[in-house]
Amino acid sequence: MTWRCADMKLSILDQSPVPEGSTPAEALAETVSLAIEADRLGYHRFWVSEHHAARGLAGSSPEVLMAHLAAVTSRIRIGSGAVLLPYYSAYKVAENFRVLEALYPGRIDLGLGRAAGGGALAARALQENRTGGAELYELQIRDLLSYLYGAPDDEHRFAGLETSPQVSTAPELWLLGSSRDSAALAARLGTGYAYARFINSDGGSMAVRSFRSSFRPSPAASAPRALVSVFAICAETSAEADRLAASMDLSLVQLEKGHVSTGTPSVETALGYNYTPYDRFRIGDNRRRMVLGSPDEVRRQFTALIEEYQCEEIMFATLVHRYEDKLKSLRLIADVCGLHGEAGAD
């Protein structure tokens, strides 16, 4: 099958990054404004992430943020990218998302992950008074399938348990991952699969292809659906996109060195940073996870990605310092890829 730009859906992942010189409250407000604009421009989904004890990322509770985003938008699907399921009761997660689905039917996505989402101290605090953990991840997903798409059967340890509120629709269930293991799990359980190319640029197309070939239908999905997520920056020229990407370059280098997010540096801070030769190597390697360039260059790279991954949807995160540059990137991509938003959208 030949995949074209016109065939694909475009979606957004926003991690509520806190720019240098800004505050977490301002970062969350920018996420809200971005979702409103994405809805207006015709993007398909808008997902928000979960990170803990991270000074540079304000989004720690995707369910709470999702409720507000869904309230101020009208068409775009709103989702989590991702709820870190090993920290929580699957039953409670199911009820949270049933409430969201009841309020905004047909517009809610439940994206799941098992990453730490923060440092060791935060992980310990989140797991306090809980038994089990990541090793029970598959069981938790199976429980979610029961809670969201029916009820636990007679063989289940909670047979007869009802999930409130009872609604006629259910959120779309997605597994997020960056390996063949996560692809195999999504295929085995019959969920959607979102490959995080912005985390791992190697082996993703094979993971998605194996997901498709081994997919087993479930109450959550009768056929495989997949997306690939990348970092993306679009500007009027490739030189300007490259300049804006300096903020992301330094942010990723600092994250790798300290294993914590410290905020998005300005372009000026990034260009003035004293990089080591190894830092320069890491920047080059990290650039493989990004789509950068002018509108035509970004469109060509997106088209190449959907051909390589044989997927119907691209989701992207734009990590730049200035909100105005992020907004412009969003609009340029919508225009060059022919999204159909509100009449008269710029």
Score class of each variant (00 low, 15 high):
56 G>S: 09
129 N>S: 11
190 G>W: 00
189 L>H: 06
154 D>S: 15
315 M>E: 04
309 Y>A: 13
200 N>R: 06
102 A>P: 14
117 G>H: 00
112 L>R: 01
191 T>H: 01
110 L>E: 00
277 P>F: 02
163 T>G: 12
16 S>Y: 03
234 C>P: 14
223 A>E: 11
37 E>L: 13
78 I>H: 06
121 L>C: 06
90 A>E: 05
38 A>N: 09
110 L>F: 01
57 L>C: 05
88 Y>M: 10
292 L>E: 04
212 R>Y: 04
168 S>G: 07
208 V>A: 07
343 A>F: 09
172 E>K: 14
281 F>Y: 11
281 F>A: 04
301 Q>N: 08
346 D>L: 11
217 P>W: 00
341 G>M: 07
93 V>M: 01
139 L>I: 14
142 R>K: 15
196 A>L: 05
243 R>P: 01
21 G>T: 11
50 E>P: 03
85 L>A: 11
157 R>F: 15
242 D>W: 07
215 F>I: 06
22 S>A: 10
209 R>P: 12
317 A>S: 09
189 L>R: 05
38 A>I: 09
301 Q>C: 02
117 G>C: 02
232 A>N: 08
345 A>E: 02
295 P>D: 09
325 D>F: 10
297 E>M: 13
170 A>S: 10
268 E>F: 01
288 R>C: 10
180 R>W: 08
171 P>N: 07
258 G>E: 08
241 A>K: 04
222 S>H: 10
161 L>P: 14
299 R>Y: 07
340 H>V: 15
9 K>P: 00
315 M>D: 02
190 G>R: 00
293 G>N: 05
97 F>K: 05
255 L>A: 11
58 A>V: 02
119 G>P: 13
127 Q>R: 14
18 V>P: 03
172 E>T: 12
259 H>L: 12
292 L>C: 07
324 E>R: 13
329 S>W: 01
194 A>L: 09
220 A>W: 01
172 E>S: 15
157 R>Q: 15
2 T>F: 11
138 E>A: 10
185 L>A: 12
211 F>S: 04
226 A>R: 08
86 P>K: 07
33 S>T: 10
327 L>A: 15
80 S>R: 04
278 Y>K: 10
231 F>H: 11
99 V>H: 07
10 L>I: 07
225 R>W: 03
176 L>D: 00
260 V>N: 07
163 T>H: 03
251 S>E: 07
133 G>D: 04
111 G>Y: 02
221 A>D: 05
